[in-house]
């Protein structure tokens, strides 16, 4: 009997090795391991054998059954693997056929430049202050030590509006009014930058816009020196433009700072590019805001934001910044 079973098992293993689908496997399972299979019938007959024979035959029977069960399991696993690989093959995709339909929008170049500048100055310990774009003569000029008759007023090419007395209300010609508003609200120490839109009666062309963006810095604290101003600008320039870029200060004139300077940054070819103006806050400006210039000193600086965006992306026409052409906006 055992011999017969051995050959049955061999047959089962041979057929299981070739079984091609799960249905056939199920049939073989029934055929070789089911209730009517030779193995099951043989197990039932064990009881009729003598104890000594029963033990030997039982062991052999269990071993044969385990072999067949193992073969069924292996066949099932083989079929599952084949089915999976067939499914995977059926699901094959060429991913290069697809483009996402969800499009992320873009931040405006000026916002990107402004955010970068704010982040650099925040890292240097500054806060960000803002103010209105329509200003009074007090904030735009007088508090900044630019009296009504001052020749510098003409150089601002101010745009006025139909509010108040003639030339009393204007579109701010610089971000410096925010200095005054900040100092009026807050006693030193003050460390702020003030980004924002400013206005001049400039006809729009490739390099000018009547409305453009500047950023202004103001520090008022005890013992602030011109060395601090030069050092702060230098640190900003190295952080923003990269470690190789140097800065220098040249004497200049602004009514609201004394001493005043222009600051330049070095270009790769060894020449200098004028970036903005700066200086030590004029004592009259501090006094106008109720700050004692013998107790507190400060510096201020300012420069254009749009121009940095123009330089960074090599724009050849600044009007692109306000045209809102989506073919332009989506490039950044």
């Amino acid at each position: 009997m055992i011999e017969t079973l051995h050959s049955t098992a061999a047959e089962a293993q041979a057929r299981l090795a070739e079984v091609a689908d799960l249905d056939a496997l199920a049939q073989l399972d029934v055929e070789f391991l089911g209730k009517k299979s030779a193995l099951t019938l043989a197990k039932r007959q064990l009881g009729s054998l003598a104890p000594e024979q029963r033990r030997t035959a039982g062991q052999a029977l269990n071993q044969i059954r385990a072999e067949v069960e193992g073969a069924v399991g292996a066949a099932r696993e083989r079929l599952a693997r084949a089915a999976l690989s067939e499914r995977l093959e059926a699901e094959r995709l060429d991913l290069t056929e697809f483009r996402g339909t969800a499009r992320r929008g873009s931040l405006h170049l000026v916002t990107q430049a402004r955010d970068r500048l704010e982040d650099v100055f925040v890292g240097m310990g500054f806060s960000v202050a803002e103010g209105p774009e329509v200003e009074s003569a007090w904030y735009n000029f007088e508090a900044l030590n630019i009296p009504e008759w001052h020749p510098a007023r003409g150089s601002f090419d101010t745009i006025f509006v139909n509010l108040g007395a003639p030339e009393e209300v204007m579109l701010r010609s610089h971000t410096s009014p925010v200095q005054i508003r900040t100092m009026e609200k807050q006693q030193p120490p003050i460390y702020i930058v003030a980004p924002g839109r400013t206005f001049r009666t400039d006809t729009a062309d490739a390099t000018h816009l009547p409305a453009f963006n500047q950023i202004e810095g103001l520090v008022v604290d005890r013992g602030i020196t011109m060395g601090d101003l030069a050092g702060t600008i230098d640190e900003f320039v190295r952080t923003f433009f990269g470690g190789d870029v140097k800065s220098r200060l040249r004497p200049s004139y602004f009514p609201f700072t004394e001493p005043s300077a222009e600051f330049d940054i070095s270009r790769a070819d060894g020449t200098w590019l004028e970036l903005g103006g700066c200086g030590m806050v004029h004592p009259n400006v501090l006094r106008n805001c109720g700050i004692d210039p013998d107790e507190w000193q400060g510096f201020a600086f300012g420069f254009g934001i749009d121009r940095l965006a123009v330089m960074r992306h090599e724009l050849d026409d600044i009007r692109e910044l306000v045209n809102n052409d989506v073919r332009f906006l989506r490039q950044f």
Binding site: R103, L107, H108
Partner: peptide, 8 residues
């Protein structure tokens, strides 16, 4: 999916 615009 919006692009930021800054008209004058």
């Amino acid at each position: 999916g919006c692009d930021e615009t800054l008209p004058m």
